[in-house]
Design a binder for these strands. Sequence first.
DNA 1: CTTGACTCGGTACCTACCAACAGGGTTTAC
DNA 2: GTAAACCCTGTTGGTAGGTACCGAGTCAAG
Lengths: 135, 135
Amino acid sequence: MMPLRSKQLAERSGVNLQTIRYYQEIGLLPEPPRSAAGYRRFPPDTVRRIRFIKRAQELGFALAEVKELLALQVQTGATCADVRHRANAKIADIEAKIRDLRWMMNALERLAASCSGAGPVGNCPILDYFDEKES
Amino acid sequence: MMPLRSKQLAERSGVNLQTIRYYQEIGLLPEPPRSAAGYRRFPPDTVRRIRFIKRAQELGFALAEVKELLALQVQTGATCADVRHRANAKIADIEAKIRDLRWMMNALERLAASCSGAGPVGNCPILDYFDEKES
DNA sequence: CTTGACTCGGTACCTACCAACAGGGTTTAC
DNA sequence: GTAAACCCTGTTGGTAGGTACCGAGTCAAG
């Protein structure tokens, strides 16, 4: 297979062209060789690497964490337990986020329920909550 | 009451000094009068305004949205229904986020369960999922 | 030989701040 | 009156994860 240019890589892996450059800039993609005119020539399996990144991102991993996972993948001596540990930590993160969001939603629902929706904004219980004097 | 200097305002409202200046910069706080030496002199009720902002933020409103809420508060003709509408939209946002996070968590839990934790990283089902060839 | 599509690096923008800096201002104790 | 201690000011740059635009260079087809 021929090496890919930036746009081809972007199209085949389903991301924006600038995303490719961004990933390269932050070291998620190795520095590719260049053509005589300076064009990037990516090895075709880079498509797979980008899909790896996107899939890990979908499950909540930040790019810095994805970088670690990619490093783990080729690191001799890395074990399955290392990966599982990261997955479990991420699960705990997500649980905490969900708890926060549920608390927000609950509070908002109670406020919305206490607001009849009639009348001017002066006695709105929602704004009153935001504007309470005491802490 | 005497007007407050930046740091006093920051301390009394429980935010960082730079946050005060940031809020002023983006128009969330009105431009305060200055002392002869150029020091900001905030009216004491600014503390209350910042607490408003912080409370709305806690319930998931972005600063731009908080700005709208603050504008609504003093806008003649604004109704309680306007506020409730915003609250309901925010509830829908949060619901969508929770759904996404639950999907992530589910997927991660299934992957973590499929991973024994034993052995090298080569056959890790978690990394395999990220690294699958087919889309 | 020109046109259009592509590529390059660089920069700026978004959110919601935080940190560090230089150069002054003010207050308090002695 | 002066020195230490602390405060203020604006400016710059950083964070994550990109998106978007710019002028200039390159390449292939007609």
